[in-house]
């Protein structure tokens, strides 16, 4: 008993040290690149993509830590949790998927849930497909499409000019590392952390979403209007139509708000792109 506790403690401490070290390392990389950016242009598109992906990877490291905790709590092994993260690279979809696995849900339920929760990626992929440079062959599109997430989309889409395959690969690779390593550490150590801490970590992902939404809303009243409409419809679904699954509610809210936005404030080319 005594030795069990000791080894638990050791795993916990080691994992936490691991997270801290990786976080510090990435932080240093980030500021290094940030400082160097002004003095010399990053020649390699791959490195540029990686440097732009570092904040995403840091965020993922902490968010996927939460997913690791959730997966192990739902009865999955550490390896299964890591494989799910590596194969999916999506937060909300994975969380819902683990819940279905834990409940022994039907395969069709799994497929439909992933379809509704992740359908937003189809819209993002479509937006992003308009920004690809000429060297993006179909084969390269097949590879890069694996890495279209909310954050990668947001960062890539906000870049001026066209996107190259190597730039996308760099950003996807570092985000992938953050996501899978965080899952592993969370699955290995999460159960040993105090509940107050894991609860507080539940807000990380949403905090990141807020950081993506607010600056363009501040710049453009039109974006702000669309964001507010989407939020209001989403709230109405939650409290007036709770039977609608959250995945469907998000899709309907977002599509309605964007349709209203497109009808009321059509975007002129290259303007509005925040």
């Amino acid at each position: 008993m005594q030795s069990d506790k000791k080894s638990d403690c050791a795993i916990c401490t080691q994992s936490l040290c691991g997270v801290a070290l990786i976080a510090i390392f990435l932080e240093i990389c980030y500021y290094y690149v940030y400082i160097m950016k002004g003095t010399m242009p990053l020649k390699s598109q791959f490195l540029k993509g990686m440097s732009h992906g570092i904040p995403i990877a840091l965020g993922y490291l902490s968010v996927s830590f939460g997913f690791g905790i959730l997966a192990v709590k739902s009865g999955l092994s550490i390896m299964a949790a890591v494989i799910i993260s590596a194969a999916n690279l999506t937060s909300a979809g994975q969380a819902a998927g683990v819940t279905i696995i834990a409940a022994g849900g039907a395969y069709i339920e799994m497929a439909l849930t992933q379809l509704t929760i992740n359908l937003r990626y189809a819209l993002m992929a479509l937006s992003l497909s308009q920004k690809l440079d000429k060297s993006f062959t179909p084969g390269k599109r097949l590879i890069a499409s694996y890495g279209i997430t909310d954050e990668i989309f947001a960062v890539a889409y906000s870049q001026p000019g066209k996107l190259s395959p190597t730039y996308m690969y760099g950003m996807i690779l570092i985000s992938f590392l953050g996501w899978t390593i965080g899952t592993f550490l969370g699955a290995a150590a999460g159960q040993l952390l105090p509940k107050a801490l894991t609860d507080a970590m539940g807000i990380l992902l949403y905090g990141m979403f807020i950081a993506i939404i607010i600056p363009p809303s501040r710049k453009s009243k039109n974006v702000l209007t669309v964001v507010v409409i989407a939020a209001v419809i989403s709230i109405l679904f939650k409290y007036l139509l709770p039977s609608v699954s959250s995945g469907f509610a998000v899709i309907i809210s977002a599509a309605a708000a964007s349709l209203i936005g497109a009808a009321l404030f059509p975007v002129d080319d290259e303007e509005e792109k925040a």
Binding site: R120, A257, A262, V267
Partner: peptide, 23 residues
Amino acid sequence: RFFKSFLCYIPYAVLSAMTIPAI
């Protein structure tokens, strides 16, 4: 132009609807 505008707004709308009220 309409579809372009729609695609321009959708990411922010999706993130907003996912965040509120879930946060």
